[in-house]
């Protein structure tokens, strides 16, 4: 039977590196998804995953078990990704590259643009996918690091606002406003594209 995270954490705390390996194996895919959505870049996402586990290993003693271990890890990952994104912003670099989401919009995904378009993936449909991808990347790039984090945690990871605030270490109101601002910016950027189809 699979041991609960807490039991594995207790073993890892006592220096059992095999136990820590179990935690890495359990959470690395989810952390990659979060990191990719935060950074928009595979290589950066991999660095964030690595850095998250390294920080988690060092801080295991501080994990008090009140929060879910996954939420605690997400908080570390969000902070690592924020550091990275802020550093990029300071250098004036784009965070989300248009080509970041390799492969573009998934074929057959529940994309309202595509479901209203022709079924066959003709040139027009592929062009739309590419256009959407670029606009989404640009729109994500317009978000501040805090907005991006709050949005990713709320929208993609399905965290409630309260958990988002815990993960970000801020008040619930602040987390809520970050999500609002993010959605407003995304609407402004993407609505013209969505509503013309």
């Amino acid at each position: 039977m699979e041991l609960a995270d807490q039991a594995v954490i207790d073993r890892a705390r006592s220096g059992d590196s095999d136990a820590f390996r179990v935690l890495v194996e359990r959470h690395s895919r989810a952390l990659f998804r979060l990191s990719f959505r935060m950074t928009g870049n595979e290589s950066d996402a991999e660095d964030v995953v690595q850095e998250t586990f390294l920080r988690a290993y060092r801080q295991l003693g501080k994990f008090d078990g009140r929060a879910n271990f996954g939420t605690w890890l997400y908080r570390i990952a969000a902070n690592c990704a924020l550091d990275l994104v802020r550093a990029r912003s300071r250098r004036g670099e784009k965070v989300w590259e248009p080509g970041a989401a390799a492969g573009g919009i998934r074929e057959g995904a529940s994309d309202p643009l595509l479901t209203s378009a022709a079924k066959d993936p003709g040139p027009e449909r592929l062009a739309i996918s590419s256009q959407v991808r670029e606009r989404v990347a640009e729109a994500m790039d317009e978000l501040s690091p805090a907005e991006r984090t709050a949005f990713v945690l709320r929208h993609f990871e399905g965290m409630c606002i309260e958990d988002v605030s815990r993960a970000l270490g801020c008040q619930t109101g602040a987390a809520k406003h970050s999500v609002f601002r993010a959605v407003q910016k995304l609407r402004r950027a993407l609505e013209p594209l969505v509503n013309t189809k």
Partner: peptide
């Protein structure tokens, strides 16, 4: 309109990690 925008975000893929990623 809000739903359509947020659904477009949902359709954004994340690169798959292969077997043995962990």
């Amino acid at each position: 309109s809000l739903e359509r925008v947020l659904n477009v975000m949902d359709a954004l893929p994340v690169p798959e990690r292969g077997e043995g990623y962990e």
